[in-house]
Amino acid sequence: MSAVIEMVRAGPLTTIQDAGRHGLLGAGISASGPMDRGGFALAAAMVGAAAAGGVEFTAAGLELAVVAGSCRVGFAGAEFCVRHNGVELEWPGTALLQAGERLVVTPGARGNYGYLRFDHEFDLPSVLGSVATNSRAQLGGLAGRPLRARDRLYLGSPAPTVSPAAQPAPVPTEAAFRVIWGIHADLFAPATRQAFVGTRFMVTPQMDRMGVRLADPAAVFAGASALSLVSDAIVPGDIQILGDGTPIVLMRDHQPTGGYPRIATIISADLDRFAQQRPGTPLAFQPVTVEHAQRLLRGGGP
């Protein structure tokens, strides 16, 4: 045993995540995994040798104490203030934690999700190939639930070395979120589709790992009739429109299938950035081709 860590304070929705539990949509389980994959990877790069699993926490931050042993921790994602035994450290960054020491993460200026990665593996059971917490199916992590104060995490075997990850290039905060038209886009009137790309929406506080509700101040979808659709497959980033016209962006713990119409899907290259938008942030959507979205994934420009 290399270290025992105790949560002193855990904000809501502090969960264990890893690369995700893929390949089980047919069993009714979405993949989960970090809301901001780039931030999760950067936290690992900060450690140099990171366990597959890490701690995802929300804007409220968290506090932990090392009960026994020692370990190195890396932190990244969003913007937070971090103190190691009272001394403020740079964010993102890393620290060597010894028995009796504390790491305190408090809210920062921007973003929703932060990550801690450690240089030793969590001693947690792998559930269907992953330790990721699925908040919908209540699987993985610590008994399938978010972490709370007094929970202990046991760190065991040393983690493998990870190659350094490049910090993502800064994106102008006003940049539109690029989307691919959705599987039901043709069911919306041309004027509605036009308004969807010409209007600002807003992130609301109704957000969790399953989805983010948007406000639609221009009432783009107010007249959209409640369509009766055959339930169909969902992927992260899908924007579904509820019967009352509310848009919801489905995230990592999304339901595997759903019957609400989906107008568009946020592209993979923009989904991390979307997850980090705080309530009240205005958003615009910009349609791109699937070819364009895939060029971005292969490193073909911003």
Binding site: I180, G182, I183, V230, D232, A233, V235, P236, G237, D238, T265, I267, S268, A269, V290, A293, Q294, L297
Partner: peptide, 17 residues
């Protein structure tokens, strides 16, 4: 056959069940 995001394809055999 239609794209569902940039990592999936949906092959649809009808609009109703």
């Amino acid at each position: 056959i239609l794209p569902l995001g940039d990592g999936a394809v949906l092959v649809r055999f009808g609009e109703t069940l």
